[in-house]
Amino acid sequence: MTEICNCKGLASTISEYIDGELPPELCAELEKHMSECENCTIVVNTMRKTIDLYKQPEPTNPLPDEIKSRLYTRLHLEDYLNK
């Protein structure tokens, strides 16, 4: 399962490619290579997906009560604590 990709030179451009910040000629070069290289295509797709996953908002836990209470006290906002 754990193959190693040997297209080393390309790794440095992948990140910028995903951000859409790669200069056009390098972009074309990478896309041409990807059309012939399944490994690099997988690396690009899984990296894009990785970033995507990290962008998903986490289920929001509210601020723990005791932290909130200490914050409001420190800021002299006790009167607004239970609203």
């Binding site: 399962m1 754990t2 190693i4 790794a11 490994n39 997988i42 997906k49």
Partner: peptide, 24 residues
């Protein structure tokens, strides 16, 4: 800078699995 890369295409996994509590 260029560690060996794992080459499994897992993009096809369903979203609820990609973002299950364990995955998160």
């Amino acid at each position: 800078a260029h560690p060996g890369m794992v080459l499994t295409d897992w993009c096809c996994l369903p979203e609820d699995e990609l973002l299950s509590a364990e995955s998160r």
